[in-house]
């Protein structure tokens, strides 16, 4: 599944798409950044409810394919702007983490 396909599946708002054709290899869920940092697999979709600026650093360092902000959490314009600069795929869905992942897994 590509990032674009995942976004569609989750009726997601594409806050920033740097590479929508990137393949999503697997997934990871978490909000505690040091856990995500140490464990999120490369090219995974990272499901979180965190929206502060540090998610971008974590996304870059772990090389996840896309950050999926769940529960329709508010993402600041400044963070979207930074995601653009850093070419990070960032999407936002109204689904909660459990249901977002369920939709993803049902399709894989």
């Amino acid at each position: 599944m590509t990032v674009n396909q995942l976004a569609e599946l989750l009726n997601a708002n594409k806050l920033n798409i740097a590479n929508g054709e990137k393949e999503v290899a697997t997934g990871y869920a978490g909000d505690l950044l040091s856990f995500v940092m140490g464990r999120a697999p490369e090219d995974s979709a990272w499901f979180t409810i965190m929206t502060n600026v540090n998610i971008l650093a974590v996304a870059t360092l772990t090389d996840v394919a896309v950050v999926v902000v769940c529960e329709g959490a508010t993402v600041d314009e400044s963070i979207i702007e930074k995601a653009k600069q850093q070419e990070i795929n960032l999407i936002k869905t109204e689904y909660d983490v459990f249901n977002a992942i369920k939709r993803y897994l049902d399709e894989t």
């Binding site: 909000d31 505690l32 950044l33 040091s34 856990f35 965190m50 502060n52 540090n54 998610i55």
Partner: peptide, 8 residues
Amino acid sequence: LGFGAGMG
């Protein structure tokens, strides 16, 4: 902010 897991 998502820190404080004691995993750093």
